[in-house]
Computed example of a mutant assay.
Amino acid sequence: MIGLYLSGTGNSKHCVEKFVQLLDENGRTFPIENPQVIEEIKNETDIVVGYPTQFSNAPLMVRDFIRNNSTIWEGKRIFCINTMGAFSGDGTGCTARLFKIYGATVTGGLQIKMPDSVCDSKLLKKTEEANKKIVKQADEKIEAWVAKIKSGKYPKEGLGFCDHIAGLFGQRLWFYGKTLKYSDKLKISDACVGCGLCVNECPMDNLVQQSGGKPVPQGKCTICYRCISHCPAQAITLLGNRVVEQTTFEKFNVG
């Protein structure tokens, strides 16, 4: 078994790693931007795919990854995991439907609440203690479902017709334009110190470092918030105009 993930702040990475390790002690996990991941997929049958939901949709980078590698999914057994700050509707279903088109069998879906990762919005912010409790509950949910899966019972969260309707009308239709294409809204302020950390963090190679200056976005942002979460100068914003709180999984991990 292998696990694949897109993770900006570490939430989805943690959930996929924990799920895979509990289910298969020999299982391995990879970020989807890893250049070796295609060969790994070709050599495995059981695959776990995890990502954060954005406006009740899977990130465009994840959907493109599935579509651009359409020939490798035939005969694979896919388990979908999505993380969410509050609501995702059919977050797992958004990729499950694609996988089925390309010949995969979707064995289940798990939707896991994790701390909000949108650093430049106050909307879903909670106290550190509340976020630690969310992480603890997420771990307990993963552990409980892995035990059931070992007995042959798989969760189907986000995969049903009612979930599809909830995701479609709950968020996706109203915010469809935000996930239809890669974003060109990433902003880097003059607070930038030119350290280049964001350039290395970006899974899309969206940021190009200028000589002696701040990086320039190339309009390929996948809204993962990785650069915003890790910028030491808090100089990067996307949906909002200032960084409210940088949120990475390590901050709330209770061990």
Rank of each mutant, 00 (worst) to 15 (best):
G212H: 04
R242M: 15
G213C: 01
S121T: 13
Y5M: 04
I38E: 01
S189E: 04
I72P: 03
F161Q: 13
I236E: 10
E40I: 06
T107A: 04
Y154S: 04
I78F: 02
G27V: 05
P35I: 03
I72A: 02
E250P: 13
V37N: 00
Q209G: 03
M1S: 07
Q246D: 09
L98C: 10
V243S: 03
A191C: 04
V244Y: 15
A86V: 13
H14T: 03
E245V: 15
L23I: 07
E17Y: 04
A130E: 14
N69I: 14
C15R: 02
F169R: 06
S189F: 02
L238M: 09
L98Y: 01
N200C: 10
W145S: 01
A144P: 00
L6W: 12
K13W: 00
T9A: 00
G10T: 10
I112D: 12
E245H: 10
K133N: 14
P232I: 12
Q171N: 15
D139V: 01
K122L: 15
N43S: 14
F249C: 03
N200P: 09
R67G: 03
G93W: 02
E157A: 12
V62C: 12
Q171V: 11
K113Y: 04
S229I: 09
H230W: 11
G27L: 10
C119F: 06
E245S: 13
F161I: 15
V62F: 09
Q54K: 09
V254Y: 14
G240D: 06
F30I: 03
N131S: 04
C192M: 08
N68H: 06
N57V: 07
N68T: 02
A96N: 08
Y176A: 13
D139E: 14
